[in-house]
């Protein structure tokens, strides 16, 4: 799949933003006043910034409001609704924390649940696609959710939980890569079933329908950069999980040093998740590529 920067930016940033909102909704940290304001500013900048970035890949963004109408069948529609609901509920909760010095617990829990639901619906947009076997697995939502919660814990400064959640997310990442590499072969779809000619012999794509490129090849048959996949995996894993873990577990004392390291851990994690997300798209094989003999 074509790794569109807008979608990579969106899923990375909004995943982190909603992860932070999840922890804030649960009262972790139970900040009020200016401190709470800064936390919510970061969370909303990430979540809303991500959502705005996602509209850049639309052909007709001025009609985006129509995407709220098809919640009965469409995960993309459900995502839009969940995102807006989470942002509204958590906005109300934030008003209480910032200006009224109070935490409306039930509202916070509802906001936390909606924040996680948003990340889940995002992941289901990819998971539902049988056409991309690498995504069509229960590990996809597990990966999105574990990344979001781990990143949220890191941002929320949940010192005791963050190392465990980061370790868990790292393990999920390794499992996802291990399973994903065999997903297309395991799906049973190949040029033989695509053409229905498999029973007659070995099928080979002889001539494409046209000499130039087209929308399908640009969107679904991304092979550039795949040769660097293993290196990028090491980079993603090191930046996303190993370095942040080392930084938050480093036995340092002093308020400033601790906070500088925590900030570096967050930046490293974000960079790592962005690389992982690039791989998520660039390595995903859409079955339509089979028709073009490109896999």
């Amino acid at each position: 799949m074509h790794p569109a920067p807008s979608v990579i930016l969106f899923t990375t940033l909004s995943g982190l933003g909603f992860g932070l909102l999840f922890f804030l909704g649960l009262g972790q940290p139970a900040a009020t006043g200016t401190v709470a304001f800064v936390f919510y500013l970061i969370a909303y900048a990430l979540a809303v910034g991500g959502l705005l970035a996602s509209t850049f890949h639309l052909g007709r963004p001025e009609r985006a409001w129509r995407a709220f109408t098809q919640w009965k069948t469409s995960w993309l529609s459900r995502e839009g609704i969940c995102a807006v609901a989470a942002l509204l509920v958590m906005g109300l909760y934030a008003l209480g924390a910032v200006f009224l010095d109070s935490h409306w617990t039930l509202l916070g829990w509802l906001g936390a649940a909606l924040s996680l639901a948003t990340v889940f619906t995002t992941s289901m947009i990819y998971t539902q696609l049988k056409t991309v076997p690498r995504w069509n697995t229960a590990l996809t939502p597990v990966m999105f959710l574990s990344f979001s919660i781990a990143g949220g814990a890191l941002l929320a400064g949940a010192e005791t939980l963050a190392p465990w959640l980061l370790t868990l997310a790292g393990a999920v990442q390794l499992a996802y890569w291990a399973k994903g590499d065999g997903a297309l072969a395991a799906s049973g779809t190949d040029l033989a079933t695509a053409t229905g000619l498999g029973s007659r012999g070995t099928v080979r794509a002889f001539e494409p329908p046209h000499t130039g490129s087209n929308y399908l090849l640009r969107e679904f048959v991304h092979v550039v950069g795949r040769k660097h996949a293993q290196k990028l995996r090491v980079i993603a894993f090191a930046l996303g999980f190993v370095l942040p873990l080392l930084m938050i577990l480093a036995p340092v004392h002093g308020f400033v040093l601790k906070h500088v390291l925590a900030a570096l851990a967050v930046l490293s994690h974000m960079a790592g998740i962005a690389v992982s997300r690039w791989l998520f798209f660039a390595q995903a094989e859409h079955v339509v590529g089979l028709y073009y003999g490109k896999r």
Partner: peptide
């Protein structure tokens, strides 16, 4: 249509452009 492209992603046959 908002041109999000998800329907083309969902089609295994490359029928939508």
């Amino acid at each position: 249509c908002i041109g999000c492209g998800l329907c083309a992603w969902a089609c295994p046959y490359g029928a939508r452009e």
